[in-house]
Amino acid sequence: MAQINPHINFNGNAEEAFLFYQSVFGGEFVQIMRFKDLASEEFPVPESETNKIMHIALPIGTNILIGNDVPESMGRVNENENRSKIAITAGSREEADKLFNGLSAGGTVEYPMSDSPWGSYFGMFRDKYGIEWMVDFDPKYKGKV
């Protein structure tokens, strides 16, 4: 069954923010990935962004707070406007496709469902109401991150 988790975008201070959230909520990060962890010929990462957070996840109760730094090439996140997405962690590729196709109908696909450079099956879109969503399935975590 799918799980919905909040996902927050940051302008280079995701790690600082998540260390703060961890100090308040407690717990241990289940995943921390930096942009340098993905660097390759097909996914080049500028030196200025290698240590920024690509993905960080902190379990809070039965949900997971997820975040990342937005690469400078994508522009700054307007901190006074929408800087978050709803992240769905699917239990299977089939469920990920069903949710992505259903929710993105009439919306704008930003990243089609595909095998991502970080190893999961991932897609991102803005629905017809302007809400931003990410759908992810990672068999390593069986729908738990």
Results as ranks from 00 to 15, higher is better:
residue 17 A to V: 06
residue 17 A to M: 08
residue 18 F to N: 02
residue 20 F to T: 01
residue 21 Y to C: 01
residue 21 Y to F: 03
residue 22 Q to G: 04
residue 24 V to G: 07
residue 24 V to S: 07
residue 25 F to D: 09
residue 26 G to N: 06
residue 27 G to V: 12
residue 29 F to R: 00
residue 30 V to D: 13
residue 31 Q to G: 10
residue 32 I to K: 14
residue 32 I to H: 08
residue 34 R to E: 09
residue 36 K to H: 15
residue 37 D to R: 08
residue 37 D to K: 07
residue 40 S to I: 11
residue 41 E to L: 01
residue 41 E to N: 10
residue 42 E to S: 13
residue 43 F to N: 05
residue 43 F to T: 08
residue 45 V to K: 00
residue 45 V to W: 04
residue 46 P to C: 02
residue 46 P to M: 03
residue 47 E to Y: 00
residue 49 E to M: 01
residue 49 E to F: 02
residue 51 N to V: 07
residue 53 I to H: 03
residue 54 M to Y: 07
residue 55 H to C: 12
residue 55 H to A: 06
residue 56 I to M: 14
residue 57 A to E: 15
residue 58 L to Y: 01
residue 59 P to D: 06
residue 60 I to F: 09
residue 61 G to M: 00
residue 62 T to V: 09
residue 62 T to Q: 10
residue 63 N to K: 07
residue 64 I to C: 12
residue 65 L to V: 02
residue 67 G to H: 06
residue 68 N to A: 13
residue 69 D to P: 01
residue 70 V to R: 12
residue 71 P to G: 03
residue 72 E to N: 10
residue 73 S to Y: 04
residue 73 S to W: 01
residue 75 G to W: 10
residue 75 G to R: 13
residue 78 N to L: 08
residue 79 E to S: 09
residue 80 N to S: 12
residue 82 N to K: 12
residue 83 R to F: 13
residue 84 S to Y: 10
residue 84 S to E: 08
residue 85 K to V: 10
residue 87 A to G: 06
residue 89 T to N: 12
residue 89 T to Y: 04
residue 91 G to C: 13
residue 92 S to M: 09
residue 93 R to P: 02
